[in-house]
C-alpha cells in the first residue's frame, strides 16, 4: 500500500506526513503541478501555507493541477486525508462540507489538544475505540470549523462528525466542538490537529496520530482482500 503526500509551494508538514505514512506503509511526495498520483492508494493533503494562504487558506491550492486528480480520485472512492491546511483545501474544493474561519481567540495557537472519537467505524478511525481520547498537537490561526446548522444536523445523522475537541479543548471556537469531519461517503476526512506530528512519544506527546494512518492502511488493504 502506498500513500501519496501532496506538496504545494508553502507546504511545511509534508515531510512529517511522509514520515508518519512510512511508519505504516510506503509513501511518496506528489508535486502540486503534476497530475499523476503515481499509483497512490491514499492521498494526504498536508499542513502548511499553500500558495501563501493568499485570498483564503486553501483557496488557490484547491485549483492546483494535482487537485484535479485528487478530486477524481475522491469521487472514485479513494481515501483522502486533509490535515490543517489540507483540511482547508478539501473544504475549499467542496470535497468536505463547511469552512474554516479565523480562531475565536484571534491568535496563532500551538498546543497539544485532547480529541474524542465520535465515529470509530470509519475508514480513518477504525483503529480507534468509540469515545477514545486522542492527544495530538494543533497549530493554526484559521481552524474554527463552521457549517450551517442544517448541514451539521445532516452530518451528525450520517456519522460525519468524526472527531470533537474534548471538554475545555476547543481553543479555536469551532461550532459543536468539531475537530474532524468526513464526507457523506466516508472516504474523505479532514482535521485541524496534526496526527503526523504525534507518531513518537519524544516529540509528539503521544503516538495517537499513527492510529489515523494505520486505520487508512487497514481500510485500503481490507478493500484489496
Amino acid at each position: 500500500m502506498k500513500f501519496g503526500v501532496l506538496r504545494f509551494p508553502g507546504s511545511c508538514d509534508e515531510v512529517d506526513a511522509l514520515g508518519a505514512a512510512r511508519r505504516v506503509a510506503d509513501a511518496e511526495l506528489l508535486w502540486h503541478g503534476d497530475r499523476d498520483l503515481k499509483g497512490a492508494d491514499a492521498i494526504v493533503v498536508p499542513g502548511g501555507f499553500s500558495y501563501g494562504d493568499y485570498l483564503r487558506a486553501g483557496a488557490i491550492a484547491r485549483f492546483a493541477p494535482v487537485m484535479e486528480s485528487v478530486i477524481d480520485f475522491a469521487e472514485d472512492g479513494g481515501l483522502v486525508l486533509g490535515i490543517c491546511n489540507g483540511f482547508q483545501v478539501l473544504c475549499e474544493a467542496r470535497l468536505l462540507p463547511g469552512a474554516l474561519l479565523g480562531n475565536a481567540n484571534r491568535r496563532f495557537t500551538f498546543r497539544q489538544v485532547g480529541l474524542e472519537v465520535l465515529n470509530s467505524g470509519g475508514s480513518f478511525t477504525q483503529g480507534c475505540a468509540l469515545g477514545q481520547r486522542l492527544s495530538i498537537p494543533a497549530k493554526h490561526s484559521w481552524g474554527r470549523y463552521h457549517a450551517e446548522e442544517e448541514t451539521l444536523a445532516a452530518m451528525d445523522r450520517a456519522g460525519q462528525i468524526v472527531l470533537r475537541y474534548a471538554d475545555g479543548e476547543n481553543f479555536n471556537g469551532s461550532v459543536h466542538e468539531i475537530a474532524g469531519v468526513s464526507n457523506e461517503r466516508g472516504n474523505v476526512f479532514g482535521l485541524m490537529p496534526h496526527p503526523e506530528h504525534a507518531v513518537d512519544e519524544l516529540t509528539g506527546g503521544s503516538t495517537d496520530g499513527l492510529k489515523i494512518f494505520e486505520s487508512m492502511r487497514l481500510t485500503v488493504e481490507g478493500a484489496h482482500v
Binding site: L55, R56, A99, H146, A147
Partner: peptide
C-alpha cells in the same frame, strides 16, 4: 468560484 467563499 474564487474571490469569496459563499458559505461564510
Amino acid at each position: 468560484r474564487l474571490l469569496a467563499n459563499p458559505l461564510v
